[in-house]
């Protein structure tokens, strides 16, 4: 039976507005509600559906970070993952470093499919899945909106700028999720109880990858340039008048 590895990243909840610290040294995230990155929830949901259809045996949820990330792994276990793995790591983990750590996890676990969110909603990098596939020397199907498994291949419909592209990749492969792949399930109370007894293993990132790869240095954070609030007009003729004045419509 296929084994599926899903990555879950702990991020500030998508409904919370994050601001820059007044001194520009970072983002003011202390005390904010934290959640599983929404694209990663979609990744886990897809893996669970594969298992429920009998296309996969085991679903493993993995994250990298501090002990607080156990919370997101418990969420993943409550959603239905069979077991969870925390790779403990201090500080920020950039995509290339995350990919290197995940590669070592992949070598230990030997999954047939790795499903990841296409981007995390904090750094908005959209890199880690592609980097994992590359370091692993395996195919990638990014921005998936439909995945069909058939033997040792996956046929993936991808959301690209020009429309919908279909790739066929040989397994094992990395798939990253777009929004419309599925709608993640809600967690029910008994599932939370059940999740407490599921296995959650912890490893050390330093043991897996002794030397960190080159990384970007964050120099400063600033709020974005704000657009000035404009005017509210009363009717369409007033609107059209302003647009004509600016030469925007004939």
């Amino acid at each position: 039976m296929r084994k599926i590895l899903v990555t879950l990243k702990r991020v500030v909840d998508s409904n919370v507005r994050v601001r820059v610290k007044p001194d520009g040294s970072g983002m003011a995230v202390e005390g904010l509600k934290m959640s599983v990155n929404p694209f990663d929830e979609i990744a886990l949901e897809e893996a669970l559906r594969m298992r429920e259809r009998g296309e996969a045996g085991e679903v493993l949820a993995v994250t990298i970070g501090g002990d607080e990330c156990q919370q997101q792994l418990r969420t993943g276990l409550a959603m239905g993952a069979d077991r969870a793995l925390l790779v403990r790591c201090e500080g920020e983990v950039q995509p290339l470093a995350a990919a290197g750590i995940l590669l070592e996890v992949i070598r230990r676990e030997e999954p047939d499919i790795v499903i990841m969110g296409k981007q995390a909603i904090d750094d908005d990098c959209n890199q880690t899945g592609q980097m994992v596939a590359t370091l692993w020397g395996r195919p990638q199907a990014t921005f998936a909106s439909e995945v069909k498994l058939n033997g040792d291949t996956a046929r993936v419909i991808r959301e690209v700028d020009a429309g919908l592209e279909t790739l066929e990749v040989q397994l094992p492969a990395v798939i990253t999720t777009d929004l419309r792949l599925n709608e993640p399930r809600y967690i029910k109370l008994p599932d939370i109880m059940k999740a407490r007894s599921k296995p959650l293993e912890t490893l050390s990132a330093d043991d897996l990858v002794p030397a960190a790869p080159p990384a970007l240095t964050a120099l400063s954070y600033e709020p974005p340039a704000q657009r000035q609030k404009g005017v509210v007009v009363d009717d369409v003729p007033a609107l059209m008048g302003m647009l004509r004045e600016r030469g925007l419509v004939s």
Binding site: V18, V20, D122, D124, L216, S220, E222, P223, P224
Partner: peptide, 15 residues
Amino acid sequence: RPIYAGNAVLTVETP
């Protein structure tokens, strides 16, 4: 580059 859905602009330096 923008982060947090454009809620902040980050200046980075490459190695």
